[in-house]
């Protein structure tokens, strides 16, 4: 027990140190500095929501376009940005790995967690701000929102770790992630409600755990206005399997080590 607790303490210490360093190297001390961490995803989401509002999407459905946009686009910021930071994370941090407390997992985790924090703060600030401004209602069920967001963060963490480790073993991952993730944006559930799809389409999109998470988050926000489709069990199983794959990939990478 004590060695486990000691190990955990070292782990947290190292993660803390690496995250602080990451913030400094990435944002520096100039201008608004680390505020960019969540200003960046906020600006993305705001721009898209503004565009959708201007175009008048989903008019007459009864669901506020602001609520729809913020709950949708914020999730994209989570699952798309996290792997983006994990891929190629090792080479610029190679010198850190000469320090024995630092494991490859820590290097990935520091970047991924920082990105997750940025997306989460962005989502929280935007939805709270829009609520205060009367542009959308507050959540009907906060626990569902939280649960959906955490499940999605877990999924994003696992896939980031997997792709990050894989990207060191094969450079194809670098090339493929951008187009593949781009294709998944319209499929991810951010821009549609599952109930609006034909049954065949529903079956297909519900293969993706991200869709379940987005539906769960929206169910928490405005579940009384639509019928949400999700299975928490499916996401749990999917995430667990994905995490195991990620750990295996990371293990084989750290066995192989860095090329001198």
């Amino acid at each position: 027990m004590s060695t486990f607790r000691q190990g955990l303490r070292i782990q947290l210490r190292v993660l803390h140190a690496l995250m602080l360093r990451e913030m400094l190297t990435r944002y520096g001390r100039h201008n608004v500095g680390f505020l960019w961490l969540f200003l960046e995803p906020m600006m993305f989401t705001l721009a898209v929501v503004a565009l959708w509002t201007a175009v008048g999407m989903h008019k007459g459905v009864g669901i506020s376009i602001v609520a729809f946009g913020i709950t949708g686009y914020s999730t994209i910021m989570l699952w798309r940005n996290m792997p983006g930071r994990a891929i190629g994370a090792i080479p610029p941090n190679a010198s850190l790995l000469t320090h024995r407390p630092v494991q490859m997992f820590d290097v990935f985790a520091a970047r991924i967690l920082l990105e997750a924090i940025g997306a989460t703060v962005s989502f929280a600030v935007l939805s709270f701000g829009a609520w205060m401004l009367g542009l959308m209602h507050g959540p009907e069920d906060v626990l569902k929102v939280l649960g959906g967001w955490l499940l999605l963060a877990w999924f994003s963490f696992a896939i980031s770790l997997w792709l990050g480790a894989a990207s060191e073993l094969s450079s194809i991952v670098y090339k493929l992630w951008a187009p593949v993730s781009y294709i998944f944006i319209p499929l991810s559930g951010a821009v549609f409600l599952v109930e609006a799809l034909p049954p065949v389409g529903q079956e297909v999109v519900l293969l993706m755990p991200v869709v379940h998470c987005v539906e769960l988050i929206r169910d928490g926000y405005f579940g009384s206005l639509f019928h949400a489709y999700y299975s928490i069990g499916y996401v749990l199983v999917f995430n667990t399997v994905l995490t195991l794959f990620a750990m295996a990939q990371l293990r084989s990478l750290s066995r192989k080590g860095l090329q001198p």
Binding site: R13, R21, L24
Partner: peptide, 15 residues
């Protein structure tokens, strides 16, 4: 982009 002080702090935190 880290300063000397940042580097020292980082190492101290790591260990």
């Amino acid at each position: 982009s880290l300063s000397g002080r940042d580097s020292l702090r980082l190492v101290c935190r790591l260990y």
